[in-house]
Amino acid sequence: GNIFIKNLHPDIDNKALYDTFSVFGDILSSKIATDENGKSKGFGFVHFEEEGAAKEAIDALNGMLLNGQEIYVAP
């Protein structure tokens, strides 16, 4: 299952995104959108192997604080 994450703190990188979401299941890919200079655009995507893991991550993390910013997590 794919999920979309927005309002990410600029310091959150691909590894931090992966580490945050990997507790919910096996991740096939995770990516933070960046500009041409490699600076985070504040949103990203995680693709879980299983749909159930994606739903669990959405339920658990939507509205949670990550590096002091409330993140939005949705399908």
Score class of each variant (00 low, 15 high):
residue 28 L to P: 03
residue 34 T to R: 08
residue 10 P to D: 12
residue 61 L to P: 03
residue 72 Y to S: 05
residue 11 D to K: 06
residue 12 I to M: 05
residue 36 E to Y: 14
residue 34 T to L: 13
residue 44 G to A: 14
residue 30 S to E: 04
residue 35 D to N: 13
residue 42 G to E: 09
residue 6 K to W: 02
residue 40 S to T: 10
residue 25 G to T: 01
residue 13 D to K: 04
residue 39 K to A: 07
residue 68 G to R: 13
residue 1 G to E: 05
residue 14 N to K: 04
residue 22 S to Y: 08
residue 13 D to G: 07
residue 6 K to G: 03
residue 51 E to S: 07
residue 9 H to G: 10
residue 60 A to Y: 07
residue 16 A to L: 10
residue 43 F to L: 02
residue 46 V to F: 02
residue 32 I to M: 13
residue 52 G to A: 14
residue 39 K to D: 10
residue 23 V to G: 06
residue 65 L to V: 13
residue 67 N to F: 08
residue 67 N to L: 08
residue 51 E to A: 10
residue 49 E to H: 10
residue 67 N to E: 15
residue 27 I to N: 00
residue 21 F to A: 09
residue 54 A to E: 04
residue 57 A to F: 04
residue 2 N to Q: 02
residue 4 F to N: 02
residue 65 L to W: 08
residue 57 A to V: 13
residue 58 I to C: 14
residue 54 A to C: 06
residue 8 L to W: 01
residue 12 I to L: 08
residue 19 D to L: 08
residue 6 K to I: 01
residue 58 I to G: 06
residue 42 G to I: 02
residue 57 A to H: 00
residue 57 A to R: 01
residue 62 N to Q: 13
residue 8 L to A: 04
residue 65 L to H: 10
residue 62 N to D: 12
residue 11 D to I: 09
residue 38 G to K: 08
residue 2 N to P: 00
residue 7 N to Q: 09
residue 22 S to I: 09
residue 70 E to P: 10
residue 31 K to V: 04
residue 14 N to D: 09
residue 57 A to N: 01
residue 51 E to K: 10
residue 21 F to D: 01
residue 35 D to K: 12
residue 23 V to I: 15
residue 19 D to R: 09
residue 68 G to N: 13
residue 21 F to T: 07
residue 5 I to V: 09
residue 31 K to D: 00
residue 37 N to L: 13
residue 36 E to Q: 14
residue 47 H to F: 02
residue 58 I to S: 07
residue 47 H to I: 01
residue 35 D to S: 15
residue 40 S to V: 09
residue 36 E to H: 14
residue 50 E to D: 13
residue 53 A to D: 13
residue 62 N to H: 13
residue 11 D to Q: 10
residue 34 T to Y: 15
residue 33 A to T: 06
residue 44 G to E: 00
residue 26 D to I: 08
residue 21 F to N: 03
residue 38 G to V: 08
residue 11 D to T: 08
residue 9 H to C: 12
residue 16 A to G: 07
residue 53 A to C: 12
residue 71 I to V: 14
residue 19 D to Y: 10
residue 14 N to T: 09
residue 18 Y to V: 05
residue 30 S to K: 01
residue 72 Y to H: 06
residue 48 F to D: 00
residue 46 V to E: 01
residue 48 F to G: 00
residue 63 G to C: 08
residue 40 S to W: 05
residue 46 V to L: 04
residue 9 H to P: 14
residue 69 Q to H: 15
residue 23 V to P: 05
residue 61 L to S: 07
residue 24 F to L: 07
residue 25 G to P: 00
residue 70 E to R: 12
residue 17 L to A: 07
residue 24 F to G: 01
residue 9 H to K: 08
residue 48 F to Y: 12
residue 34 T to H: 04
residue 28 L to Y: 06
residue 62 N to M: 15
residue 12 I to G: 00
residue 5 I to A: 07
residue 6 K to A: 04
residue 56 E to V: 10
residue 25 G to A: 06
residue 74 A to D: 03
residue 7 N to C: 09
residue 22 S to N: 13
residue 72 Y to F: 10
residue 20 T to L: 05
residue 52 G to W: 10
residue 61 L to T: 07
residue 38 G to C: 08
residue 60 A to D: 08
residue 64 M to V: 11
residue 55 K to M: 11
residue 59 D to V: 10
residue 68 G to L: 12
residue 55 K to D: 10
residue 50 E to P: 09
residue 16 A to P: 03
residue 61 L to E: 04
residue 60 A to G: 08
residue 11 D to N: 10
residue 53 A to L: 10
residue 2 N to K: 02
residue 21 F to C: 11
residue 50 E to A: 13
residue 45 F to S: 01
residue 48 F to M: 05
residue 25 G to R: 00
residue 39 K to P: 04
residue 6 K to P: 00
residue 9 H to E: 08
residue 44 G to P: 00
residue 42 G to T: 09
residue 24 F to S: 02
residue 19 D to A: 12
residue 49 E to S: 10
residue 20 T to Y: 04
residue 34 T to N: 10
residue 52 G to E: 12
residue 5 I to F: 04
residue 21 F to V: 09
residue 34 T to I: 11
residue 9 H to N: 15
residue 2 N to E: 00
residue 39 K to G: 13
residue 37 N to E: 15
residue 34 T to F: 08
residue 27 I to P: 02
residue 14 N to Q: 09
residue 65 L to G: 07
residue 3 I to N: 04
residue 44 G to W: 01
residue 29 S to W: 02
residue 69 Q to V: 12
residue 60 A to N: 11
residue 29 S to Y: 01
residue 40 S to G: 07
residue 68 G to W: 06
residue 23 V to S: 07
residue 48 F to N: 00
residue 11 D to E: 09
residue 23 V to Q: 06
residue 34 T to V: 14
residue 71 I to Y: 03
residue 30 S to W: 06
residue 69 Q to I: 11
residue 41 K to T: 02
